[in-house]
C-alpha cells in the first residue's frame, strides 16, 4: 500500500502568540515548532497500517527549510520518505494545489491529513486537495478499518458519529480517535539513526494560485479582573449570572 501523510509544522501548543510591531506578521522568535498534533494521529495510523498490511509511507510538507526538523521526526517515527515543497504555506488553496501537483501521478491508495493545523485552523487543505485529486473525502475522521481496498470509516458529526463505507483510494482528515492518544508514536534512538539515511527530497513549487492574504493580526481583548464569590454564598453567583451577565 502506498500512503501519503501530510504534515504541518506549527507552534507548540504552549506558545504565547505574539506579532511583529506592526501586527502584520507572526513573531516566531522564542517559539518552538512541532508536528501539528492532528497529524501525529495520522502518522501513527499510517504506522499501524504499515505494520499490519505492509505499506510505504511518504510524508509531505509545504514549507521553508526550518520545517525539516518536523519531517525528520516523521522519518524517525517510521515514514520511509519525506518531501518538502520549498514554499511558504501562506494560503490553504495554494498549499493544497502544490501537494496535489506532487501527488497526482503517484498512485497513493490513501492520503491522511490532520483535520486542521493548529496555527491557521483553516481546515481547508484536506478538502481542497481531495477535489484536485478527485478522491472521496472524510473530514474529522475518528476511525478507519481496511479490508483489502474496502474501507470502513467513522467520522465525527455534531453530537455523535457516523460510520461510512468506501473504497480506496480516498482522503481522510484525522484527529484523536483515529488512534488513541496513548498509542501516539515518538521517535526512538534507532529510528532517529535510521532517519538520517532516509531520503528527504526538496522540490520547488509548481505554479499555484493564492486566494487569500492576511492583512494583520490582533490578540483577543483581555478580560477584566474576575469577581470572586464566597463558596458559602453561591446564591450571589446565581444572582450575578441572572442580573449582570443575563445568561440565566
Amino acid at each position: 500500500m502506498n500512503l501519503l501523510v501530510c504534515i504541518s509544522h506549527v507552534p507548540d501548543t504552549t506558545s504565547k502568540i505574539a506579532f511583529t510591531d506592526d501586527h502584520t506578521e507572526f513573531d516566531a522568535s522564542g517559539i518552538t515548532f512541532v508536528m501539528n498534533p492532528y497529524d501525529e494521529f495520522g502518522l501513527t495510523k499510517a504506522m499501524h497500517l504499515k505494520e499490519s498490511n505492509g505499506a510505504r509511507i511518504t510524508v509531505i510538507n509545504v514549507g521553508l527549510s526550518a520545517t525539516e526538523s518536523t519531517l525528520r521526526k516523521a522519518l524517525a517515527i517510521g515514514a520511509d520518505e519525506a518531501i518538502r515543497i520549498n514554499a511558504e504555506p501562506t494560503d490553504a488553496a495554494y498549499v493544497a494545489e502544490l501537494i496535489a501537483d506532487y501527488a497526482r501521478d503517484k498512485n497513493f491508495d490513501l492520503i491522511i491529513t490532520g483535520r486542521e493545523s493548529i496555527d491557521y485552523n483553516g481546515g481547508a487543505v484536506p478538502g481542497i486537495l481531495s477535489v484536485h485529486l478527485n478522491l472521496p473525502f472524510v473530514n474529522a475522521c475518528i476511525g478507519l478499518d481496511l479490508n483489502g481496498d474496502q474501507a470502513t470509516l467513522v467520522r465525527e458529526i455534531d453530537g455523535g458519529k457516523e460510520t461510512l463505507q468506501g473504497k480506496l483510494p480516498l482522503l481522510i482528515a484525522g484527529q484523536k480517535g483515529l488512534v488513541e492518544e496513548k498509542d501516539l508514536r515518538i521517535p526512538a534512538m534507532r529510528g532517529i539513526m535510521m532517519a538520517r539515511k532516509k531520503p528527504l527530497t526538496v522540490i520547488e513549487p509548481s505554479e499555484a494560485t493564492k486566494q487569500t492574504m492576511v492583512l494583520n493580526y490582533d490578540l483577543p481583548k483581555e478580560k477584566e479582573a474576575c469577581t470572586l464569590i464566597d463558596p458559602d454564598q453561591v446564591d450571589q453567583l446565581v444572582e450575578l449570572l441572572h442580573r449582570e451577565a443575563k445568561v440565566i
Partner: peptide
C-alpha cells in the same frame, strides 16, 4: 459545523472560490 466543514472546502475548490 462538522458537516459544514466537510462541504465548504469542496464547494470552494470546485468553484475556484476563496475559502
Amino acid at each position: 459545523t462538522n458537516n459544514g466543514k466537510a462541504i465548504a472546502p469542496l464547494v470552494a475548490a470546485k468553484r475556484k472560490a476563496a475559502l
